[in-house]
Amino acid sequence: MVSFLLIILASFVFIGVVVRTKSIASGRKGPGVMQPMKDIIRLWRKGAVYSKTSSFIFQMAPTIYLASILLAIAMIPHGKLPGIISFDGDFVMFAYILAFGKFWMIISALDTGSSFEGMGASREALYSMLVEPAFFIIMGSFALFTGYTSFYDIFSTLNYGPYISYLIGLLATFVLVLIAMIENSRMPVDDPKTHLELTMIHEVMILDNSGFDLGNIFYATSLKFSMYGALIANLFLGAVPLPISIPSFFIIQFVFAVAVGILESFMARFRMSHNPQFIFILTSVSLLIFFGVLLVLGKFI
């Protein structure tokens, strides 16, 4: 429960910090950190315009997308407190429930019959398919390393382990940051700053969404970022008492947001055709983590 509330709290300012970092990096004054959340609330107060082509799928998708992310967040532990839901193999469900939300977003994009949104949907489906092995290999490596298969058991035993676990954690952080970037269609694979039609993946999928639904989608993006931030925080947070773990959780989220902002400020978008190669690199890095774990466990015989 604690972790759920913390992630919700972090999600309010996460995108704000990213935007602020970007504005400072480009020498602008920029809006306050609460501005993106204010925009979302403004959207939540609006009505909606739907495409004539679309069906109930289009109206349901943002809701289910948000619900899937909320359920996924409920599985993430915090320090020595398990998440609301915790069972062996919960990270499999974590990945699959996120995929369920994504399935809905993809078909809602196809529901409008627009060629732009179809293009975005196709890419979203492809890239999320490519990114999934990396996440599973990381979690599999940690499972092998600790001997457990639930988020809570993995993260709580990881931090009692030897110092080498932090080294593996560092590599995993790199992969998780990039997974977060790809899942949210941010900089190296897609540029959310450009005019909507020129954005190639996620933003182009939601061209037709408006008002309340658009607010849900934007809020889901913030939630997703802080969810990955919480996963990263869990890599380093031991079973320390709450007065220490809560501030460090926010510090890690803050550093993550600043890192995202810096990445977005100083990196150009890749050519679309180079994206799959880039995403495959994540899988190879996560294989490195896996071999690192094998090395530590002395399984190389």
Partner: peptide
């Protein structure tokens, strides 16, 4: 709130 239907946004 007002909800309306319109053409798909064709950019």
């Amino acid at each position: 709130r007002t909800q309306s239907f319109s053409e798909t946004w064709g950019c």
